[in-house]
Simulated scan of single mutants.
Amino acid sequence: MDTPTDEAAARAIQDRLRTRVVLDETGPPPGTGLVTGVDVAYDDERNIVAAAAVVLDAATLAVVEEATAVGQVAFPYVPGLLAFREIPTVLAALEQLTSGPGLVVCDGYGQAHPRRFGLASHLGVLTGLPVIGVAKNPFTFTYAQPGTRRGDSSPLLADGGDVVGRALRTQESVKPVYVSVGHRVSLDNACAHTLHLASAYRLPETTRRADALCRRALREATLAVPGS
């Protein structure tokens, strides 16, 4: 992965790599094969980031394999450039897996990004894997509230009116999640995967498990730091 020296260099890398995003593939059917959640946790005081990759059997949602990696944060916090903080450690976690990973689910965005190249797209291009983004909070788009029923959705609209994702209700009367394509998956399929993975909770089981694992890895890493 290219390591930018400043914000301008990071945006130039995004602009170069986004031409490699594949948007004309459907991706694997929901409930088949393997699906992997990735997430990160930070200790800003110590400049440490921990990443987790959790592989699930897509049919049963049982855990197949887990991996973590811990590193130093190599890029400052800049909205729209979070991939440069997260991806090096995420890649290190993914590289430890012996199975899968199949479809990858990020806690973040893909096409729903100012340069149409969020974390999910960036990770997809670098790995060649099918990747989707399922975010907890809205970013740089507008949308109407979807209906209250599970499965109701509404388009995420960029400034020019382009559809860059969907606000998707995964549980009845619970606030939506924000789904966008990363790489090699259609938006319809990304939403279908999200609903399958969020059968009991608002967030996909991939994200829930990866979030818990990266937080645990961060706690263990910071306890090992002298003076903690």
Results as ranks from 00 to 15, higher is better:
64 V>H: 05
64 V>M: 13
107 D>L: 06
55 V>L: 14
117 F>Y: 15
95 E>I: 00
65 E>A: 05
110 G>I: 09
74 A>T: 15
66 E>Y: 00
126 L>P: 01
85 R>I: 02
123 L>S: 10
89 T>N: 03
112 A>W: 04
97 L>G: 04
87 I>H: 04
80 G>A: 11
61 L>W: 12
124 G>R: 11
69 A>D: 09
85 R>T: 05
134 V>L: 12
120 A>E: 02
55 V>A: 12
98 T>Q: 15
61 L>C: 12
72 Q>H: 14
136 K>A: 06
59 A>L: 06
49 V>I: 15
112 A>T: 08
88 P>C: 10
129 L>Y: 14
94 L>G: 12
120 A>G: 08
130 P>W: 14
57 D>G: 06
87 I>Y: 02
57 D>M: 11
133 G>Y: 00
116 R>H: 14
96 Q>N: 02
61 L>V: 11
115 R>M: 12
127 T>P: 09
104 V>A: 12
55 V>D: 04
133 G>P: 01
101 P>Q: 05
122 H>F: 14
85 R>P: 12
75 F>R: 00
69 A>P: 06
101 P>V: 09
117 F>A: 01
128 G>A: 06
86 E>A: 10
128 G>K: 03
81 L>H: 01
85 R>V: 08
88 P>G: 06
57 D>P: 05
77 Y>P: 08
135 A>V: 06
110 G>S: 07
75 F>A: 08
58 A>G: 13
83 A>M: 13
81 L>Y: 00
68 T>H: 02
82 L>P: 11
111 Q>N: 10
72 Q>G: 14
115 R>K: 13
47 N>Q: 15
79 P>H: 11
134 V>M: 04
68 T>Y: 07
65 E>C: 01
116 R>P: 03
113 H>D: 11
78 V>F: 10
83 A>Y: 07
76 P>G: 09
49 V>K: 02
85 R>A: 08
53 A>T: 05
132 I>L: 15
86 E>V: 08
100 G>L: 01
61 L>E: 13
135 A>I: 10
93 A>V: 01
83 A>Q: 06
113 H>I: 07
135 A>T: 07
55 V>Y: 05
70 V>H: 01
106 C>F: 01
123 L>D: 11
105 V>C: 08
68 T>I: 14
119 L>G: 00
80 G>H: 03
83 A>W: 03
96 Q>H: 05
71 G>C: 07
74 A>E: 15
118 G>R: 06
101 P>R: 07
107 D>Y: 05
93 A>N: 08
106 C>D: 11
120 A>N: 04
122 H>T: 01
118 G>W: 10
125 V>Q: 02
106 C>A: 08
111 Q>S: 15
